[in-house]
């Protein structure tokens, strides 16, 4: 138990912080602990949680994805065209939307792996392209989504929000894939040391493409879920998702230097961020002061997470 805690210290601390924040949120919320409140919270958290998982895959292999938000916006906009009509056409539309997400991820991956461009600048540029396509398809928010499907996916069944169930299923599947398959372990290996992974005989390039493709897939899931929650396609949602997904993975103990962290951590980080902004909303602070405190709390949380630097014995460890 103790070793487990020590190995997963960052996730454990983040989870504790989340529990405390959530308790504060419930205490402060005028309607208290009810299915309604928890469902709204869970839906919002799932959106950012999926975005954070998409970011996690790229960060795991030492990259960073500044186009996550744009992929979410693009798939959300595509969903607003495709996700209605007969069940067959919805199913087909779903496949198309997810395929677009994977394709976007692969474009990033190919530019990084075969083009020799750094992930941060690649995704900065492709983010502009994906976001541009989304804006061309739908210059202003609009479109329609099948409401039966939306209701089924955003309400609660027997007091448990469907979004939470979806998120847990995604997490379990990903955990098994990441910890129990050669591909998953290969991704961690690349993140820790690309050279060693290469010398061990791993197909580094192909595995990296898998990471970027998976990231695009999960981003498309997030985009689809945005469609379900908001019932519209909105091309302007990109920036906030990109920024929050990066903050979320860092809060959840995923190392930007690669190879460390889990999708669970990323989701916990996302839930923390969501809870903080919901707390702000009901906190009674003047609305104009809220953005400042949101930023302040985010900075404090990140700085607290970095306190480990004061425990290092030799300052040499700090420089790589």
């Amino acid at each position: 138990m103790m070793t487990w805690l020590r190995q997963n210290a960052r996730e454990t601390i983040a989870a504790l912080a989340l529990v405390i924040l959530f308790a504060g949120y419930i205490a402060i919320h005028p309607r208290g602990f009810s299915t309604y409140v928890v469902t709204i919270w869970s839906n919002q958290g799932t959106l950012l949680g999926l975005a954070a998982i998409a970011q996690f895959f790229v960060v795991l292999v030492k990259g960073i994805d500044l186009s996550v938000g744009s992929i979410i916006a693009l798939t959300n906009v595509m969903g607003s065209f495709l996700l209605n009509g007969s069940p067959t056409s919805i199913a087909l539309g779903m496949v198309v939307v997810l395929a677009v997400g994977v394709a976007c991820g692969l474009v990033n991956g190919i530019a990084v792996v075969y083009g020799g461009v750094q992930p941060i600048v690649t995704t900065l540029a492709t983010g502009g392209i994906f976001g541009g396509i989304a804006l061309l398809l739908r210059p202003t928010p609009g479109g329609s989504i099948d409401e039966t499907m939306s209701d089924a996916l955003t309400y609660a069944v027997a007091g448990i929000p469907v979004s939470a169930v979806i998120l847990v299923i995604v997490l379990v599947v990903l955990l098994v894939l990441l910890r129990r398959t050669a591909v998953g372990l290969g991704l961690y290996a690349i993140g820790s040391s690309e050279q060693s992974a290469y010398m061990t005989g791993l197909r580094v390039n192909r595995l990296k493409l898998v990471a970027y493709g998976s990231s695009g897939f999960v981003a498309a899931l997030a985009g689809t879920y945005v469609s379900m929650v908001t019932l519209t396609g909105d091309p302007n949602i990109a920036p906030s998702y990109t920024l929050n997904s990066i903050a979320a993975v860092v809060l959840g103990g995923v190392a930007l230097s690669g190879g460390v962290g889990s999708p669970i951590g990323a989701v916990i980080g996302a839930l923390i961020l969501k809870t903080i902004s919901s707390l702000m909303f009901f906190s009674g602070l003047p609305p104009l002061a809220q953005p400042f405190f949101e930023g302040l709390i985010l900075a404090t949380a990140i700085a607290l997470g970095a306190l480990g630097v004061f425990r290092v014995r030799s300052r040499l460890e700090l420089y790589r």
Binding site: P291, F293, G295, A303, A306, L307, V309
Partner: peptide
Amino acid sequence: GVAVFRVPAMVWTLAVNAMLLGAAVF
């Protein structure tokens, strides 16, 4: 943030940006 706390610059400067935004709005 970056030199003393060793927070990755990408995240820390983003948080600073958010605080500046908040201060300006306020």
